[in-house]
Write a protein that binds this DNA or RNA. Structure first.
Lengths: 214, 214
DNA sequence: ATAATTTCGTAGCCGTCCGCCCGGGCTGGG
DNA sequence: CCCAGCCCGGGCGGACGGCTACGAAATTAT
């Protein structure tokens, strides 16, 4: 039983070293990389079985790196390890060709499980994400479009106004429709995103560039 | 030479476990915590010599936690370990009473050095920041009056919870007070900031680092 | 040193706003 | 045609905001 050869990529050196220590018993960490471009080089050089990618990396983010690795190293399995639990990131990652998605909030044992699952050819999605979106996930995976593409342009418009701190009456005036209609759009938004407070909607909108937060 | 007793706080379990593995040879990790409130409890219970704090934590962020720990555990030395290198965070941290500031981009050896330095009563600032501090810190020292400084500790706490999408009832439960008290604090916040919606408050909190937006 | 004032945290009352359920109609495109 | 998106109304229960008040602590005045 040979240890799978593993490449680690994260811009936080401390985490990189910590991961190496945690995973050493079960995997052979052949290299580490601090940005997306370094991953491509290291993968080329060491031909690992598994590549663990953070999403937030300078230069080339993990999603984009995954897309390129799919081309250059089709033999390597890709796993995302990130703090971002948004569905838009999850779907973008799987569309880019990754096989696993684990959150940094997870326990190390879950990461080990994920790596073994993926190494065995299966897929793995963090249980923390499945809880968050529950039954919406299967439907989501079938959709061709990305997550924010889920929203119609009218819904994004309403979301932006909400995120700018407008109350429903104002939004209704701005759009020239009734308050009831605003509520209708807002309800659709909360259903699709699974977010039920103005505050959380605002955080989502800022993160996804729908509102600037200024 | 006895090992210093250390408390670790970070909302990313994987990093927590990695740190524990890395630091075990030189420090006695007496407890770990996943959010600011848990840190306060753990500190009370275990009376550590050193407390390592992340800034982005749910419920109560690391800066605010540091401020409280200064009161409740004056004997413990505080060190920030974060991805945020902005000077606004650095100065806020030192004003809150921390003795060390290390970036997650740093090597583990630097963190060990920082912990030992702080344990010995010295201060430590990550070398990745120091050059910037020299150039830009003066501007921060003569800043007029930090906008968030207008808020009390309790008000910042409520603001963070609001910005995390918590509803009043949840916040009341978390803080152990009545819903009306939560709303009173919120009213004071809206008066001081001139912001009257949860959405706009959230944008404000994210911009000022009171909430992370995750 | 003591009294007066301000600030902060706590909380109840009451009216409004919002979320969510129902219902309907109107349009444009597969 | 029918589905999806957009528009609108009713009604209900819970969430929220404004107002008021009181005790404790800190600050300032006397």
């Amino acid at each position: 039983m040979k240890k799978p050869r593993l490449l680690l990529a994260d811009d936080h050196t401390i985490l990189l070293e910590g991961l190496k220590a945690l995973l050493a018993p079960e995997f052979e960490v052949v290299a580490t990389a601090g940005d997306g471009r370094a991953v491509l080089e290291a993968a080329e050089k060491h031909q690992p079985d598994l590549i663990l990618l953070d999403i937030s990396m300078p230069g080339l983010n993990g999603i984009e790196a995954a897309r390129r690795l799919r081309e250059s190293n089709p033999g390597a399995k890709l796993i995302i390890l990130t703090m971002h639990g948004d569905l838009s990131f999850v779907s973008a990652a799987f569309e880019a060709g990754v096989s696993g998605y684990v959150l940094k909030q997870s326990a190390a044992t879950e990461l080990v499980t994920a790596l073994h699952d993926v190494d065995a050819g299966r897929r793995y999605i963090s249980s923390l994400i499945q809880n968050r979106v529950g039954a919406e996930m299967p439907a989501f995976m079938r959709r061709p479009k990305g997550a924010t593409g889920e929203l119609t342009s009218r819904q994004r418009e309403v979301l932006q106004l909400v995120a700018e701190g407008r109350v429903r009456k104002e939004i209704a005036q701005i759009l020239g429709v009734s308050v009831k209609t605003v509520e209708f759009h807002k309800q659709k938004i909360t259903e699709k995103l699974g977010i039920h407070t103005d505050a959380a909607l605002t955080a989502y909108a800022i993160r996804h560039g729908i509102a600037s937060g200024e």
